[in-house]
Design a protein around this nucleic acid. Structure first.
Lengths: 344, 344
DNA sequence: AGCATCACTGTGAACGTGCACAGCCCAGGT
DNA sequence: ACCTGGGCTGTGCACGTTCACAGTGATGCT
C-alpha cells in the first residue's frame, strides 16, 4: 500500500481529503461540515471555526461530481456558438464577449464550457450534452433567425440567455442587447450633423437582429428622405464590406457618407475607398458600429457606435444565474455611445 | 407517486432515464449495460443489440457526474490562458488555437473548459479547481518564462501540454510548437534573396519562446553580419510594433527590410511606415510571422511565415489525451512555410 | 465422467456528497 | 414537574455509475 518510501506528514496515500476527513479532524459529523460548506447556518460558532480550521489544515476541496450527482446541478454553464461560418473567430467581438463571460462567471466560481455547434453533427452532440443536464444553463451567441439549436434547448427547458434579440424566439428566451435602433439613429444623426446629404448604409445579414435593427434605425432617422437605393447588404465580414462599398460607389457616385453596421465591414469599406482613391472623411465619411479594438487602428481611425461588451457579457451572466435560480426570463437593453474619430 | 394526472406514454415523471431503466427495458442487468457503454466487450450479440435498442428507446444518456465520481476522471480538459495582459484577445492567434482545440476535443466528445489565470486571485482559483481533479488535463497557453501556474500544476502531477517551448520547464512538460528558429531563418533568407542588405528585426518579448527563438533564427541566418543595432524589442502588440519600427527608422535610416516576429506587430510597423511616407516594399520590405488572417488584409498584404495553427491545436489535444492515458510527455515541432505577398 | 476453461451475466459494494429526519440539550412557560 | 420549542448535531439513505467478484451453462480435454 505504501508506495512512498519516505515518511509522509499527513496522509499516507495520494487520496484527496473528503468531507469525512474534515469531519474527523474537526471533531464533528459530516452533516455539520456540509452545513458549513453551504452557508454555515444552524451551526454553532465553535463548530464553525473548528470546521474552517479543519478545511484549511486538510486542504479539503469539495468534490463537484459527488455534489452534482446528488443535487442534480452541475454548477457550470455553456458558452454556445451556433454560427455556421468561420466568421465567428474573425470577428473580435466574440472574443471580447467570451472573455467577459468567463470573467463574470469566474467571480461566481462557475466554470465555462465552450461549445461550438456549427455542423448538424456538432449540433446533435451539443444538444445531447446540454439536455443531459451537464450544464445548468446556456449563454447563447447565435445571431441567425430561427436557430434550430434554440428550439431544441427550449423544448428541454434549458435556461438560456441570448446575446441580441433572438429572432424567431422573441418573448420565449431572455436576452441582453445593445440598443441597435437608437444607436443607428444616433450615427445617422451624427452624419447629418456634420453636413452630409447622401447617407448610404451597409447592413448586416437581414436575418440577424443587428442586421435588421440597425437598418431600421437608419430608416427611422432618415424618415421621408429614406432611399432604398442607398442600402447595400453585407454579411458582417470584412470582404462583404469591401464588396458592398464597391457596389454603392458604382451605383450612387453622389454619396458622401456611409453608416456601416459593423466595424469589421467598415474596415473592408475603407479598403475599397482607399483602392478607389476616395478620401475619408473629405469625400466620404464612414461611421461604424461596435467600437471593437479594430476601430482605433484603422486609417483613418473609425468613428463608431460603442457597444458596451463588458457590460453585455456581465449582464448575460447575471440574467442566466437568476434564471437558473428560478427567476423569470428577462430582457436588458443597453445604450450605445458615439465615439468620434477621424473618419467623420 | 403518480403526480401526473394525464396518462403518459413512457415514463411518468420528468426523471431522466438511468442505466437501470435501460437494463429493465433490455431485460439484462446494469452490469451488462455498463459493459455495452464502455466498449461492448464480453457481451453476447443479442444482449448488445437489445441494450442498444433500449438505449435508443429510452433516450438514455449517461450521467457524467456519477461516472466521474466512481472513475475519478472528469472527461474534460481545461484550456488555460495565463497571460496577465489583455493582449490575449487582441491577438487573433489565440482565437484560432481555441477554436481548433475545441474542435479536436469535440471529436473525442470531451468538453473544453476555458479558464483565465491572469491575476493572483484567478491563479489561485484555477489551480484549486484543476488540482481538485475537476479536469483530466490542461492545454496551456502560457508564453512567459517561469510561469508560477505551471509550477503549481506540475507539483500536483496534472497532465499538461503547452503551446510553444515552456521556458523554465523544458523537459518537464510536453509541448507542441512551430519551428521558430527555422522559420525565422527562412524569412531572413527570403529577404536576402530579394536583394535586401540591411535587414533589421522586431522581436517578441525576450522571456517568451517566440521572442528568443525567432531572434535566434535571425541571428543564425545572418551569421557574421549580425548587428545588434538592428534589433528592436517588441511586445507582440500592435502598438509595440509601431514604436519599435519608429525606433529603428530613427536609429538606422539605411535599413531596407524588417523581419517582424508577429503579424500583429507587423501591422503596427506598417502603420509607422505609412505615417512616415516610406513605401513598402520599395523602400522597406516587411516580413511577418504567424500568417494570422490579418496578414492578407493589410496594405500591402503581408509576407509572413505561416504557423500551422489548426495542426498545432490538434496535436496538442492528441498529446494531452495520450498523456492522460499514461503515455510519456512528448514534444512536437511543426514546420512553418513562407507565404509571400505584396510586402516583400 | 470429471474437471478446467471460456464466454458471458448478475450482484453488491463503493465513490463523496446533500438532505430529511430524528435526536439532543437547554431555556422558558404552564 | 411537565411540555414546548428552538438551536444545534448526528445518521442513514439516495444520487447513477463502475468495478471486482461470483456465478452460470456450455464446451473441450484428460
Amino acid at each position: 500500500m505504501t508506495v512512498d518510501s519516505t515518511p509522509v506528514e499527513q496522509n499516507g496515500n495520494r487520496r484527496r481529503p473528503t468531507i469525512k476527513d474534515v469531519a474527523v479532524v474537526a471533531g464533528v459529523s459530516r452533516g455539520t461540515v456540509s452545513r458549513v460548506l453551504n452557508g454555515g447556518h444552524w451551526v454553532s460558532p465553535e463548530a464553525l471555526t473548528a470546521v474552517q480550521a479543519a478545511i484549511k489544515s486538510t486542504g479539503y476541496a469539495a468534490n463537484r461530481h459527488a455534489r452534482s450527482l446528488v443535487t442534480g446541478r452541475s454548477n457550470s454553464v455553456a458558452f454556445l456558438l451556433t454560427e455556421p461560418q468561420q466568421l465567428l473567430f474573425e470577428d473580435p467581438n466574440f472574443s471580447v464577449l467570451l472573455r467577459g463571460a468567463a470573467d463574470a462567471l469566474a467571480k461566481r466560481d462557475i466554470p465555462l464550457l465552450l461549445m461550438v455547434a456549427g455542423t448538424p453533427e456538432e449540433r446533435r452532440r451539443v444538444t445531447d450534452y446540454v439536455t443531459a443536464g451537464h450544464v445548468d444553463g446556456v449563454l447563447l451567441i447565435s445571431s441567425h433567425a430561427d436557430d434550430p439549436v434554440v428550439a431544441a434547448l427550449l423544448r428541454e427547458q434549458v435556461p438560456i440567455v441570448a446575446c441580441g434579440t433572438p429572432l424567431g424566439y422573441e418573448g420565449k428566451v431572455g436576452y441582453v442587447a445593445a440598443d441597435d435602433i437608437a444607436g443607428a439613429r444616433a450615427m445617422v444623426r451624427h452624419l447629418r450633423d456634420i453636413g452630409r446629404q447622401h447617407i448610404a448604409t451597409i447592413t448586416g445579414p437581414l436575418d440577424t437582429p443587428g442586421g435588421v435593427q440597425r437598418l431600421q434605425g437608419y430608416r427611422d432617422e432618415l424618415g421621408s428622405s429614406y432611399d432604398e437605393g442607398l442600402v447595400a447588404k453585407g454579411d458582417y465580414s470584412r470582404l462583404g464590406g469591401q464588396r458592398a462599398m464597391a457596389e454603392l460607389l458604382a451605383a450612387r457616385p453622389e454619396i458622401d457618407a456611409v453608416f456601416v453596421a459593423s466595424d469589421l465591414m467598415a474596415a473592408g469599406a475603407l479598403a475599397t475607398l482607399a483602392a478607389q482613391g476616395k478620401r475619408v472623411p473629405e469625400d466620404i465619411a464612414i461611421g461604424g458600429f461596435d467600437d471593437s479594438y479594430l476601430a482605433a487602428t484603422m486609417t483613418p481611425a473609425l468613428t463608431t457606435m460603442r457597444q458596451p461588451f463588458e457590460r453585455i457579457s456581465s449582464e448575460m451572466v447575471r440574467l442566466l444565474t437568476e434564471l437558473i435560480d428560478g427567476e423569470e426570463p428577462a430582457t436588458v437593453i443597453l445604450p450605445t455611445t458615439l465615439v468620434q474619430r477621424a473618419s467623420t
